[in-house]
Nucleic acid binder design. Structure first.
Lengths: 233, 233
DNA sequence: GGCGCGCATCAAGAACTCATAAAGATGGCC
DNA sequence: GGCCATCTTTATGAGTTCTTGATGCGCGCC
């Protein structure tokens, strides 16, 4: 990820006035701005330009802001600040839980916005990992396209199978406990159903591994959970 | 740090009412609270208890909140959320630039606070990387990945073996008594079963030491307990 | 030297966890 | 309504891990 002197910020906002206001404020403070008027355009630009931060207005004409947040979070951890005219607590909670890093209610001070941008960038530069395409031997997982390839051939995964793989990819190299996996994929109520995991890990191994009974990628950590191997460097 | 089921939150706040309010709200939502009334006490507790998140009131009697933020940031990246009665933009900017991750103005909704706490913890658990890798000669213990390497090769440990190693690593250099080890790993009921320790220490030595009968890393302190050597500096 | 004590080692069965296959349940879609 | 893919549930055997008791060693003390 380019950590240039002038960070690239993607602004997704439909109001012209607001766009102009932010364009002026941000570029005056050393940010490079790219702009989108619709959610669709915004998501395309996010993928093509790989910005270092996204400012997202919740009130877009074509798609709900929550939806945009969730879709972005499927493949990228880029800092995402939501700005919105809606100040209801419920809106904030939903946006934050959907994956936003911060939530600002209009009208807000430019100074505060800039400070919150600095916080997000500061944190991101300390982290900066994970490309949206994960490769390990024969296996390729493209979080953006939502596509899994084995030996170049596309493999079809069911929704739950995909969620599991995506989670494992996002934390590749780490052990994810049964509880963590179950909570993220099935929800907090099912965090005791370890049998689900056994069944699904079996299915995934059949789809992803060349020798499912001797897993190379998807390894069991007995008594703890599962782990996706990292590509050996 | 341990992503336990109940994250430990440190609250630094001088108003009794506010403390009670937050204590109730947070513990009802599965957080373990530790409380400080003054900045001095807060910083001590932050160091001694290693909380997973800090809630800091700006208006403390003994020290300015900004000062506290800066001092904390000198040695820890723990998520830090500032709550304050002052809603001036200038205050927010200063706190955020001093190192706070978020800033909430009183009065705020509990729901929003909880959501922002979730955001901070979510990010922290995804980031945590890079810190805690213990190295001692041939031996490497990565607590974040839950991985143990000997001479660069991964070694598989059973849950109990790993718990023991993790405990020893966390207290590397110090002697852990039989009782301490047994209580932490097997639970308070088994704190007399020193035989367990003998068996497991033996297994660990076979897995970790090059010459298990002459332990270099995992040393016995006769009559007391066991100790993991510190890397000689 | 004989004895007691704490420690290390070994081995075997009990208890638990995992993998796998396959049957039953659900829900969308024509 | 019936089909299909998917998800849930159950059953079973294989595989690990934990516990437990037996045995041997070394050291200090009588």
């Amino acid at each position: 990820m380019s950590k240039a002197a002038n960070p690239v910020v993607l602004l997704i906002e439909d109001e012209r006035q607001m766009r102009r206001f932010l364009r002026v404020s941000l570029s005056a403070n050393g940010y490079q701005l790219i702009e989108a008027e619709t959610a669709a355009e915004g998501m395309t630009l996010a993928a093509s330009h790989n910005p270092e931060l996204i400012l997202l207005d919740l009130g877009l004409p074509d798609l709900d802001g929550l939806e945009v947040t969730q879709r972005l979070r499927e493949w990228t951890q880029v800092p995402l600040i939501v700005i919105s005219a809606r100040g209801q607590e419920e809106d904030k909670i939903k946006a934050l839980d959907a994956g936003a890093d911060d939530y600002l209610t209009k009208p807000f001070g430019v100074g505060e916005l800039l400070a919150r941008i600095r916080v997000s960038l500061r944190r991101a530069s300390a982290t900066d990992d994970g490309q949206p395409v994960f490769t390990l031997g024969d296996l390729k997982v493209d979080l953006f396209r939502r596509q899994v390839l084995v030996g170049g051939k596309e493999v079809h995964l069911t929704p739950i199978e995909y969620k599991l793989v995506a989670l494992l990819v996002k934390h590749a190299g780490r052990v994810l406990t049964h509880r963590q996996l179950l909570r993220e994929v099935w929800g907090p109520h099912h965090s005791e159903q370890t049998q689900y995991l056994r069944v699904y890990m079996g299915q995934l191994r059949h789809k992803l591994e060349s020798n499912p009974s001797r897993p190379q990628y998807l390894v069991t950590e007995p008594g703890v959970g599962y782990r996706l191997r990292l590509p050996s460097p």
